[in-house]
Design a protein around this nucleic acid. Sequence first.
DNA 1: GTTGGCTTTTGACAATTGTCAAAAAATCAA
DNA 2: TTGATTTTTTGACAATTGTCAAAAGCCAAC
Lengths: 183, 183
Amino acid sequence: MNFNHLDGIVPFDLVTKIFELMEQRNFPKNQLLHEQGAVCKEIFLIQEGLARTFFYKDGKDITVHLASEGEVITAVDSIISLKKSRYHVELLEDSTVFSISYKTLQELLSQHPEYEKYVRLVLERMYTEGADRIEEFLFFSAKERYENLVRTRPQIIQRVNLGHIASYLGMTQETLSRIRKSI
Amino acid sequence: MNFNHLDGIVPFDLVTKIFELMEQRNFPKNQLLHEQGAVCKEIFLIQEGLARTFFYKDGKDITVHLASEGEVITAVDSIISLKKSRYHVELLEDSTVFSISYKTLQELLSQHPEYEKYVRLVLERMYTEGADRIEEFLFFSAKERYENLVRTRPQIIQRVNLGHIASYLGMTQETLSRIRKSI
DNA sequence: GTTGGCTTTTGACAATTGTCAAAAAATCAA
DNA sequence: TTGATTTTTTGACAATTGTCAAAAGCCAAC
């Protein structure tokens, strides 16, 4: 298994320790891993399958984040702040996920502060990825954003329905359908 | 002085230690703190003044980030990865900034790993802020993005020229001028 | 195979935002 | 104060993207 967010950063013994603390579970497609309005306590690592965070804005369903094998997903607006989350976290396929509570992770770090460094490095990487996504919106048209996604995450295109991809890219489904036809 | 990115998170002794390692310098308006194409080695903390990161896309000058008193600014696409940066970092006013090299900061953390936790907390906050900015683009129109900025960072509106604010919000200067008139 | 539900495409039209050029306003330095 | 420079506004028009409604396509369950 390849955990994009950890690979090349986190030493094997920490990966092992974290995995010992994680629970492996199977869920069917459409299962909610977390619901809007609740405080999110868990971080999910996708072993097999696909998940998204989304919420409703003016009745429209908007996908905020997509995670596939080896990627991490949680309600970022809640897990750290402990505020009620605006997001749902939903599986888009039958999936196998590992989960760990943020509290457990923090306890691990208290007991083994030598691991803090690696969490920092993972966060640095996540922050950089977020900065890149902001740039997408600053510099690229709807069509360019789609082309960039096709290039960087082709597996997403195959497996996620058009409506979710469109809202993830900040456009309507109709626009994405037309963009796709025009290429 | 109020350092938004640190306040309420970082204990006083660490703030003190970091400040001991930082160099305080004054620069005039328009000074570049970092140039595109170079690897960025330093992180800047604005004590007094205003800075932005920006770059050229198809000849147009696009502002990626804005930082005022108490905020941190650097070339995020380079400082961690050590890749050549796409960004310039520029002062928009005569400013007093503290600077510390990323290397020095890492050395401090090696010697005092008990501080790693606080850097992690700062990064978590920065990551969350980034996630909020992505949401801005997913959920809000040009007009709403401007109104949100007026609400959350009114001092920016007063001090930064329209063109920079417009590109920071992902729109043209003409559009922002018209939005402003319509409110 | 047929049915029913979900997803994607299409059409007609509207709203938003961008482009280019020029005028007006504000700022700054001599 | 004045002239030069920069910033902001305006106008006319074009391109992009959104909205709403309906049709077409797809797929799984019966």
